[in-house]
Amino acid sequence: MDITKFKELTARLADAKGVSGSEDGIAHMCAELMSRYTDRVEIVNGNVYAHFGERRDKPHVLLDAHLDKVGLICTDVRDDGFISADMVGGIDLRSMPAQPVIIHGREDICGVICTLPPHLKTSDEVMTKDQLYIDTGLSPESAKALISRGDPISYEAECRELIGDRLCGAALDDRCGISTVIQAIDELHYTDDMPYTLTVMFSTQEEIGERGACIGAFTVDPDICIEVDVSFALAQGEDRKKCGTLGGGCMIGVSPTLDKALSDGFIAFAKENDIPFDIEVMSGTTGTNADRFTVSRGGARAVTLSVPLRNMHLPCEVIDANDCMTTAKLITAFLRGDVKC
């Protein structure tokens, strides 16, 4: 894919539904996208698996990105027609007042998170999750007919292009990871001569504790895992040593819990081939699905390749599509055996 097509795909994925626990739609969309590259695509217990190669005498690589996105969930349809909600994943309550949302009930319903007018606020405190109410503009009768407890709720925000190749959208974490994996497979043209047997996985429920990854790693039983997720890009107020750079290339993870030889292999390859990258140092676990992969069954070697992203978990996450393209290049090179590890 050229970068224009890539951006279209990323935006389309970012705009698809799929709060943690409700990933069916995005899973089917991804399964369909992967069926262009292999006949062996399946959805098992929510996770999407696409298998390449069958030989058992080669190391088995698991390439993963997560399907789900943070959001809210309906906990009650009140008698006055307002919706009570709770958080799914790491939501910043500081940014919730008057946030436009979509409730995925019997149909998609636009709403807005209630907030008191400034002159009625009694304290200078951030709202608590007990104060999450949604105004749908529906009568109590309509609300009760269309919305039920347990309905997932997304931010209402379309993925849009900014200047250059940058995108701004609500669920680029981790939909840009999915499009990056697809880009890598699109360029790969897998054959049995390649040094690895490969399973691409798109996993559920990362945002609430990497649960899809937990069952996925057990199911696939891989030797090597590559996790494609997002990480922090440098922005106003952030600490340079903890961040990558938007447009600065893939963030290659280095951590005691990751495989040093894999990290070093990617770093060396990127250097030799003038592919822009940053090293992301984590002193323990990574906060990604890799944490599950490394200790599943008898253990696996793992590395994280992260796309730098600003405003994580807000409805205006920002990425540079060029960073996805370089991340995909690293993945393709690895799967062809060009990365020494």
Partner: peptide
């Protein structure tokens, strides 16, 4: 177009 950014909750 643009987005109003701030430091992520993490």
């Amino acid at each position: 177009g643009g987005g109003i950014g701030t430091r992520p909750i993490h």
